[in-house]
Amino acid sequence: MAHALRPSEKTLAEAGAAPEYGTVGQLDPRLRIVMAGVFGIVTVALTTLPAMAAALAMAVGLMALSKLPPGPTLRRMAMMDGFILFMLVMLPFTVPGDAIFSLWGLTASWQGLRQATEIALTANAVILALMVLVGTLEPVTLGHALHRLHCPERLVHLLMFTIRYIEVLRHEYLRLRAAMKVRGFRPGTNWHTYRSFGYLVGMMLVRAIERSERILSAMRCRGFSGRFPLLGDFALTARDRRVAVVFCGLCTALLGVDLAWP
């Protein structure tokens, strides 16, 4: 996953640092999470190629509404494709059916190609919608919105802690790596590398646990009782409701296309 992140990039956005995200950015965070969930379930339920293509088009449409830079966003989406490419390429050869062509004694089938296309369309549509609708939230807002959607409180606490400390720990990791580098460490395929990385991970964990002990004392000192002092409240506006209705209409249309297609 490191290739998803240039060293200068932040892992997660900081509170208050989020830029404006057009129409999508003005929607209630809770609504965005629910929309992403509904879209995911509807898209996975689709069985015909035109409906799946329409779902992907809808996700791209959402991206346009969110004013996310299309280049980097689509590149992130494509990175996942690199991950699954191998499986998709294999499918035509492993699913039995009518032959398209033969390669080294292996026969590619139309049925397999179809299945691979279906997976590629669905996976990309869902992940793009998720990144556009929920990925544009500030991470902390995501936690608050999940809390308002009645996620278990402890799970939300855990999420908030993770969000808070990912960037802190990544800095610690980069510092340790820099310390290794100035001592002449060059990773390679050898025992020394694996031992050093093992110690690196061990050191990170020991430090993380000691850090968490300090965090706990600091929280106790301030009388933390396990309740969230939530900043601000979410409210559905008339505009949110209109968007929700249109969105549900489009999802129903997707299912309609799916049913109507022979």
């Binding site: 490191a2 606490h157 400390y165 990912i166 690196l200 933390f224």
Partner: peptide, 30 residues
């Protein structure tokens, strides 16, 4: 979540973040 009381949530959260960061480490193999 049942095993996580208030005292253990910070530890679990920081460890969860550690494992997220550890998954960014690329180890060479060949």
């Amino acid at each position: 979540l049942k095993t996580l009381d208030l005292d253990r949530i910070p530890t679990a959260g920081v460890l969860s973040a550690s494992f997220f960061v550890a998954s960014l480490i690329h180890v060479p193999i060949g």
